Structures are given as C-alpha cells and as structure tokens.
Simulated assay, not measured.
Amino acid sequence: MLALFYILIAVAIGVSFWQITRIMNLRGDIATDKDNDTQGKLAILFTVGFYAAMVYCLIAMNVLMLPESASIEGEHDDNLFDITFWLIGIVQFIMQFLIFYFTFKYRGKKENKALFFADSHKLEIIWTTIPAIVIVVLIGYGLWQWNNMMDLSDDDSIVIEVYAKQFQWEARYAGADNTLGLGNVNFIKGINTIGVDMSDKNSQDDIYATELYLPKGKKVHFKFRSQDVLHSAYMPHFRAQMNCVPGMVTEFGFTPKFTTEEMRLNEEVIAKNEVINKIRKAKGEDPYVFDYLLLCNKICGASHYNMQMKITVVEEAEYKAWLAEQPTLAEVIK
C-alpha cells in the first residue's frame, strides 16, 4: 500500500510538470470552452481523489499515532491537539471543496462575464476577527498548559536529575532529603561521570541510575543538565519535552497515570505493536515489547540515535522497594 502511495505521488508530480509545460507552450493561444470544460472536470476528479486519500490517511494511518497520554498533565496536550486538529480539518475540508468546486462551476465560457467588486468590509471583518479569536483561545490554552507542566510547587514530588551527554542519558535521584546535591562539569572525575559535588551534604544520599523508575500517581519533578551540546529530553508518551542546555538547569514535572504493564494492555499500543512486529518478523528480528522511552529530540551528533533511556512506571510500593535497593552516591563514590 505504501508503494502505491509513492507511485500516486510520482504520477501527480509528473502530471503537474506536464501541465506546466503545456501552459508555457501556449504562447498567447486562447483557451477554448472545451479546454476550460476539461480543466473544470479534472478539478472535480482531483477533488474526489484528494478526499479519498485524506480519508485513507485518517483511518489507515491512525495506528501510527501515539496512544492516549500516560501522564495526567499530558491530557491537556491531547485536548489541545484534538481541538486544533478538528478546527483545521473542518476548515480545510470545506475550503478545499469550495476551491475545486468553484473551479468547475465558474470555468471559462464565452458568454459568461465576471463580476468584479473592489472590496467588502463585512467579509474582511469576518475573516480577520474569527481567526484572531480562535488563535487567541488556542494560544491561551497552550500557555495555561505550559504553566501546568511547569508548576513545580508540590513539595511532595519526587526530584530526579536527568543528565545528557554525547551520546547517553544518566539519572540521579534525590535521596531521603528529597534535595539534589550540587552538580557541575568541573566535578567530573573517574566514576563520578555526572559531575556531582560530593562535598555537598545533600549529595551523600543521592542515587545514581541508568534507567528511570517512576511511581504511578506521584508527581515527578525533573531537572535537566547537559555536559556538552544542546540535547532535548523527549518523553513522547508523557507529552513532555525540555531542552538540556550546557551551563544551566531546566525543568518540568508530570504525574504518570499508567504503569508500563497497564500501557502494554492498551488497545492502541497492542494494535501498533502488531504492525511493528509484522515488519520485524519479515526482517527476521525479535518481536518488540512496548516500553516508555526517554529520547533525544535534537540532532546532537553522529550517534544521536543512540540516546535512549528506558522508563519503567510501576506502582508506588514497587517503586519504593526498588529505590531502597539502590546504593547511594556516598557508597559508590568513595
């Protein structure tokens, strides 16, 4: 099916070049009523094909979309996406129809005479005011959601630092005091790969990790640092992304609402896995099992694609048991 799609694109490009060539070769020739009639009918034919392709993409390719948000805060991102998608979709559906239908209806005829008027203040007010109101509402909702993700006032939240470097992620959990010790690239030495100031008393109970474990239903406060270049911490299923900037700390927070096991049972995830595993089977590769991932969404170098960290969401009791098993930095860096 994908090959057919590429073929149709190639045919459309070829027809476009052919039409452009014809137009350039007219050299002052006047189009006849027959030419205009043919072009009008072709516009209707193109409209039918255009809408068929659009419906196909909406239905058949829906499996490529992400499942519902795995964080409570991310639900508003999904709402904003849905609102924007339906607004644009409806307007596009109507406007495309009008463009091609009017191309057919008002195709050139010798006996027809075009009606001309300079302007319409009423129309200009309508098509200026309505988009302006819609944009203000969407931007307002987006700013509210941004503030929602950046609300880190919950003192009971779990504090985790994510450290980015070419081409790897590392993490550090705040210990019992829920406060991270000072971190700086100047402290990088030996096994202290993320530059933690071990003379800071808050660093002693911090916990180093190469995989993120998060508790369901608990707010997580992420802090980001970068060792070298600009990276971007992207957690698509949680609808969260933040640049990791050398020399400064950036942050956001969210609350996971589905454990990894629960998300694996999600109908959308199952359907997507079936498509992925069908391709992997044809290549002789092992089947894919869903996991949350932390990705880098900036092209940060030749091995940028290697920057992945597994995220496991579990129930809070299991998270506490896992955390209790992890050695502190004071035990590791002596």
Rank of each mutant, 00 (worst) to 15 (best):
N184I: 05
V185H: 05
V185Y: 06
N186E: 15
F187P: 04
F187Y: 15
F187A: 04
I188S: 00
I188E: 04
I188C: 03
K189H: 10
K189A: 07
K189R: 14
K189C: 00
G190R: 14
I191L: 12
N192L: 00
N192A: 07
N192Y: 00
N192H: 07
T193P: 04
I194P: 02
G195Q: 06
G195M: 05
V196D: 00
V196K: 01
D197H: 08
D197K: 00
D197C: 05
D197P: 02
D200V: 10
D200C: 09
D200H: 12
K201Q: 11
N202L: 10
S203K: 06
S203A: 15
S203V: 03
Q204K: 15
Q204F: 06
D205L: 10
D205E: 15
D206H: 03
I207P: 02
I207W: 01
I207A: 03
Y208E: 00
Y208A: 06
A209G: 06
A209F: 10
A209L: 11
T210V: 09
T210N: 12
T210W: 07
T210F: 09
T210E: 09
T210G: 10
E211F: 11
E211D: 10
E211I: 08
L212I: 10
L212N: 04
L212T: 00
L214H: 06
K216N: 13
G217E: 13
G217S: 12
G217M: 12
K218L: 10
K218Q: 15
K218F: 10
K219Q: 12
V220G: 04
V220N: 00
H221D: 15
H221V: 06
F222T: 03
F222P: 02
K223N: 13
K223L: 11
K223H: 08
F224M: 12
F224Q: 01
S226R: 01
S226F: 01
S226M: 00
V229Q: 09
H231R: 07
H231E: 05
S232G: 14
S232V: 05
A233I: 07
Y234K: 02
Y234N: 08
M235T: 06
M235C: 08
M235L: 15
M235K: 00
P236A: 13
H237S: 11
H237V: 03
R239I: 07
R239P: 01
R239Y: 09
M242C: 13
N243F: 05
N243K: 14
C244G: 01
V245A: 00
V245W: 05
V245G: 01
G247Y: 13
G247C: 12
V249H: 03
V249S: 06
T250F: 12
T250H: 09
T250R: 13
E251A: 15
E251W: 09
F252D: 06
G253K: 02
F254D: 02
T255D: 13
T255S: 14
T255L: 14
P256T: 13
P256L: 13
P256F: 12
K257M: 12
K257I: 15
K257E: 12
K257T: 09
F258A: 00
T260C: 05
T260K: 08
T260R: 10
E261S: 14
E261W: 09
E261I: 11
E262F: 08
E262S: 08
